[in-house]
Every structure is written in C-alpha cells, then in structure tokens.
Design a protein around this nucleic acid. Structure first.
Length: 464
RNA sequence: GGCGCGGUGGCAGAGUGGUCAUGCAGCGGACUGCAACUCCGUUAACGCCGGUUCGAUUCCGACCCGCGCCUCCA
C-alpha cells in the first residue's frame, strides 16, 4: 500500500518515496533544555514516535534523530538565575525529559545529538557559508547569514522575502546588512559561555546547530524533517537557507509538522505561560491515557487540553481494556489476517491518520465483545491478539488489563482487603443476603473500587 | 496588514459528490437478585450565501467566525 504524507513544502499530501529504497532518514527538532517539558511538547514528540513506529511496522529501516539544543540564551539566563552552570542545568532537564518521554510511551530515537558536542561541525559550516558569500562577519565578531543571497528564502513558510523586509522590526544594532539577516555565531567575552574557535570566542546562534547536526547524523539530503508547526518560521526556513547554501544540494525532501496543543483556545506555550508540564498531567492521569489522548486526533490538527477530553480518552481506553480483560490472547500469526487490517493500514498510510485507525480498532472491540457474549473464547482470543497487535503499532494497549483498570484505586485499600470483601460479599449473595452484599459494594464504591459480577466471579477496578 | 489552517450531530473527532464513521452522552430493549460491563435497536450534524451538478456536508467563489505564523516557542 502506498504511503501518503502531507509535505509542508508543497502544502499537499504526496506519495512518500524514500531517497534510498527501504530506508528512511528522519531528523526532528527536539527540545531546548532549559525547563521541564510541557504537554504540548509531549504532543509533538508522541506524533513523531507514532510516525516512526508505523514506518518501521511497514518495513522501512528508519533512522530517527531527535536533537537536543543545550546551548542557547535562555539556558544561559536560566542557569545564571539559578546560580548554577549550564551543564548542570541542562543535564537535569535532559534527564527529566527522558523520563517524561518514556512515560508517554516514546521509543528512544536512534540518535540524540547535542549542540555542544557539535561545535566543530557548526564552525565548519559557518566557514563554508562565509566562503560562499552567504555569511559575513560583523564588526563585533558576530557572524550573520546573508538572506538576500538565498533566492528561495521563504519557500517553506510561504513568506515573501520582500514583505519580510518591509515588516521586519527595526533593528537597533547596525551590525546587520539587512534586517532579515540572522545570527550564525555570537561573539562572546571570554568570561561568558562560549568556545574558542577559528571564528573567535563565542557560541552558535539558534538555527545553525540543526543544520550541522542533521548533516552529521542523516546527511546533506534526507527524507523527513519534522518539528512543531511553530518552528516553520524562522527556524526551519533558516535551516534550509543554511544547509542548502552550505551543502549546495536539497535539504529535506518531506517537511512534517505537528499541530499545536491548545488550552482554553490558545496555543500552550512557554511564552504565554499557560502550560502544564508532562509531570503535572501524569500526576492526574495514567500515562497511557495521556498518550491515547494525544494520538486520538490527527497529528496536524490542533487539540484541546481539557479535563473532559482526558476523561474521554480514559473512557475509550477502558472500553479497550474491558474487551481484553478475561480473554486469553492466542499467539498471533499474521496481523494482516485481521478483519480490521485493511482499514487500519489504510488510515495510517493516509498521512498517519491515527484517529481513523483507532476507529477500526473499536470495530474489533465490538467483535471481541460479541464473541464473548456467545462464548466463543477462541475467537475472542484471536481478536484480542489482533487488537493488541494494532495497539503495539500505536504504542498503546500493551498493559495487563487488570493492572490498567485497577490503577489509581483508593490507596487505603490493599488488594487483600478488596479480595476479602469480595469473598464476604460472595458468601452474602449465597445466603441471599442482598442487603449485605449491596452494602459491601456500595462501601467499596465510595472508596473508589467498582465491583463487576460475571459468570466467572467478581472482578474489581477503579471506579470512575 | 501579509501568509496559512480550520468551522461536522449534546460533546470529542474522522470522512465522503448520491446507503454506516467511530467513541462518549441520550433514548428503548436484553442480560443481571440489583448494578457495572456487554449485546441489540435508536435519536441526531455537516458556519452563512451563491455557483457547478440530475444530486453537495464533500468541488468553486464571496462572506462571517475561530486559530496559528509573521518576535522566543514543540
């Protein structure tokens, strides 16, 4: 089946054809590590995790690179504020990021290059740009990119270079030849953060590190460049200008951008200070619920963060786990034997439409429940295995059903006590003492435990 | 102001030129000692105005509304 991907460069869905048959090189702009990741970051990187998982399932050999920007003015400012070194600060936030991302079910990228480990590559690239007249050194030692020399400037973000010029803010400094020019290298005093290099003592500007790291990790021309939608301009536009000018060839073939996460109608962002960290959210919801919430919309659509929507994601996952519960999954031969296979693959092959793929999985749930109703447990077992197989592609439904459904129950009740009360209630039911049986159930319900009777006995889960 | 994206039933959220999204919620029924879960049935939508068409929620145009980018941002 053909894969179609929306390419920001052409503003349309295109058939995906890798540069090298069977292989995909993907570079995604990662975090600038000066603070905890918020759930909007989670949304973005879960999207690329989902894309990577699906591409691999389809048999491509994917090299997934997600960089870490660990030198930057905000990092320097924050470190100064906290009276600690940049290294200590960034290491702490990198560790937190790894933990948060793992909680959201993300697989590790194949490479996570750091800007500070690529200073030499950055300097080399800047020197090439100067040599080719695409960059110039200003009086104070800064190096700027000469936007007027790059004819295709604006091709990704759809900006008209002349209008950018007209709309550019008046620069106070007279260092630039042109207000659109952006900094490649910032000269610094020796007591400031920086590196001694052939360009002088200083540090890289914001965009150049991605040009250097992508070249080092996936090459001069590669298949997919990803990132948040808000990076289209200026970051990605500038990356294109730098890389194509320095390397003299095309940069990324497909540009994939993840949509924003909104809260109360606005984009969640650091600058609006309207964000919840991933840790904030995980304190309230199971990690799988959060991931399921994030993949329940198409990756390019804005999604709204709200209690209601998280709750809905939880309800949806509970429906899946109720179906899985009490069914012994069989060993699965081929996922492509599943009745949901075509719909699922078609959905995911159409620009990674996870929501529609999930709809196909719900149809499987209905079949599982029907099989359970008629007592065809062999069939149920097969269908559950299929369901889990699809779940694996999306990075969900790998949990034990009881574990998922019981998580977050009242903490002052041990499993033993619950089991004992269930036994007491079973005895009461045998004695036809329904008043007592109902009281036990009601008391447990008030403590957050819901009892479910079935032919096989009574099971329990967190009440919602 | 420039560029771009979107407005779908009570809510969330896909999709399509002419019978179904899907989930939650609602309603009716089954199951159950009563519930929950589940099953069966069912209600209900395509911002507004024109155009193309035998037929448009789907294509085209105008309008209204919301959002994003244009400055640090995933």
């Amino acid at each position: 089946m053909k894969l179609y991907v929306y390419n920001t460069l052409s503003r349309s869905k295109e058939e995906f054809v890798p540069l090298t048959p069977g292989e995909i090189k993907m570079y995604v702009c990662g975090m600038t590590v000066y603070d905890l990741c918020h759930i909007g970051h989670g949304r973005c990187f879960v999207s690329f995790d989902l894309i990577t998982r699906f591409l691999r399932y389809m048999g491509w050999k994917v090299t997934y690179v997600r960089n870490i920007t660990d030198v930057d003015d905000k990092i320097i400012a924050r470190a100064a504020e906290r009276n600690e070194s940049c290294e200590v600060l960034t290491e702490r936030y990198i560790a937190a990021m790894q933990e948060d991302f793992a909680s959201l079910g993300m697989l590790s990228p194949d490479m996570e290059p750091k800007a500070t480990e690529h200073i030499a590559h950055i300097v080399t690239m800047i020197e090439q740009l100067i040599e080719k007249d695409y960059a110039y050194k200003a009086e104070n030692g800064d190096v700027y990119y000469r936007v007027s020399h790059f004819a295709e400037y604006g091709k990704l973000s759809g900006k008209n270079p002349d209008e950018l010029l007209a709309g550019a803010r008046i620069e106070v400094e007279k260092l630039k030849e042109d207000p659109r020019d952006f900094v490649l290298w910032k000269a610094a005093a020796v007591d400031q953060v920086g590196w001694p290099t052939d360009l002088g003592y200083g540090r890289p500007g914001w965009h150049i590190e991605c040009s250097a790291m992508s070249k080092d990790s996936v090459g001069e021309t590669f298949d997919i460049h990803g990132g948040g939608e808000d990076l289209q301009f200026p970051h990605h536009e500038n990356e294109i200008a730098q890389s194509e000018a320095a390397n003299g060839c095309d940069f990324a073939k497909y540009w994939v951008h993840a949509g924003p996460l909104r809260i109360d109608g606005d984009k969640m962002s650091k600058s609006l200070n309207n964000f919840f960290t991933i840790q904030d959210v995980l304190a309230k919801y199971q990690s799988e619920v959060v991931r399921f919430f994030l993949i329940s919309s198409h990756y390019r659509s804005p999604i709204n963060y709200s209690e209601d929507n998280l709750r809905e994601a939880q309800n949806g996952l509970e429906r899946f786990y109720h179906a899985i519960r009490d069914v012994k999954a069989v060993e699965l031969q081929d996922l492509n034997q599943s009745s949901a296979y075509d719909a699922f693959i078609a959905a995911m092959s159409d620009d990674f439409n996870s929501r529609e793929a999930i709809a196909a999985m719900y149809e499987l749930v209905n079949q599982i429940n029907t099989a359970k109703v008629v007592g065809d447990m062999a069939r149920a077992g097969l269908l559950v295995a299929e369901l889990r197989g699809f779940g694996e592609i999306l990075g969900v439904l790998q949990e034990d059903a009881d574990k998922f459904l019981q998580a977050g129950s009242a903490e002052d009740l041990s499993e033993e006590i619950v089991e004992q009360l269930i036994a007491d209630r079973a005895q009461a039911k045998l004695n036809r003492d329904y008043a007592k049986a109902d009281k036990i159930r009601k008391d447990l319900m008030e403590k957050g435990v819901q009892l479910d009777d079935s032919r096989e006995g009574t099971s329990w889960r967190r009440s919602s």
